[in-house]
Simulated assay, not measured.
Amino acid sequence: MTEELLDKALVEEATKKSGLIWVRSDGVPVLGAQSPAASSRALWHVWHDGAACLMGDGPGEQPLPDLVDGGGAVVTVRSKDKGGRLVAWSAKVVELTPSSPEWEAAVAELKGKRLNAPDGEAMTARWAQECRVLRLEPTGMTGEQPTGSLAAPPLPTPATTRQPIPAALPRLLRRKRKRR
């Protein structure tokens, strides 16, 4: 019983303090050295009422992995100071119904953490129409700690900042050096 309470406290504290969690559907096999972490997603979240709450799958929002209501998920939490894997825990996925009391409470917490929202105060109405709000309720420790680095190339995304440098940039940089 004491070990179970300690595990629950570790999951809660580690998840509260971490800005990101890595989430994959429970149906995805354990990652190994040859399997890239393409099935796990780094997601921002908030810890609210005993569960990790997250929002996504809408235009301009974070893409969620293949999580289904009532299904399972595996959550990996990193250490805030060292950045390494701290704990992995299994979760039950609960999709919240828009405008329900649970949805309203979760969204009130999430909107405070959403950075650079394009629509400000209207974002909650947009979330109700276009996005999914999920609760990942802990069901226990997974006991699995994958070996290796699990480093993988980033997943394809339309959100990119890599573009060729403007042709005039090298000349502009040379002029600044000459003026000094």
Rank of each mutant, 00 (worst) to 15 (best):
A51K: 07
G58C: 01
H45D: 02
L67T: 02
A37F: 03
V94G: 01
S40E: 15
W89H: 14
L96R: 03
V93Q: 03
V94C: 07
L67Q: 00
A88I: 02
G84Q: 14
W89F: 15
K17E: 14
G50K: 07
L20G: 07
V75A: 04
P29Q: 03
C53G: 10
Q34F: 03
G71I: 00
V23W: 04
G71W: 01
R41K: 14
V87H: 12
V28I: 13
K82I: 05
V74C: 11
G32E: 08
V30L: 12
V77P: 05
H45T: 07
S18M: 12
W47V: 09
A37H: 04
H45I: 07
L31S: 07
V94Y: 00
V75W: 09
S39P: 00
P36F: 02
D81A: 13
L20P: 03
P98Q: 10
V87F: 13
S90L: 15
A52L: 06
V94K: 10
D69G: 06
Q62T: 09
K82Q: 13
K16V: 11
I21Q: 05
A88E: 15
G71N: 06
Q62K: 03
A33Y: 11
G19Q: 12
L86R: 15
A42R: 04
R85M: 14
K92D: 11
T15K: 02
P36K: 00
D26A: 15
A91H: 03
D81R: 05
V23I: 14
Q62F: 09
H45Y: 13
V68N: 05
D66E: 13
G27F: 02
C53I: 09
G84N: 15
H45A: 08
W22C: 08
G19K: 05
A38Y: 12
P98F: 13
T97K: 10
L67P: 05
L43K: 01
E61W: 13
V94W: 00
V68P: 00
P63M: 05
D26P: 01
K82V: 09
P65V: 00
C53D: 11
L86S: 15
G72F: 04
T97E: 15
K82G: 13
H48P: 09
A42L: 05
R24M: 13
K17N: 15
S99C: 07
H45G: 06
S35V: 15
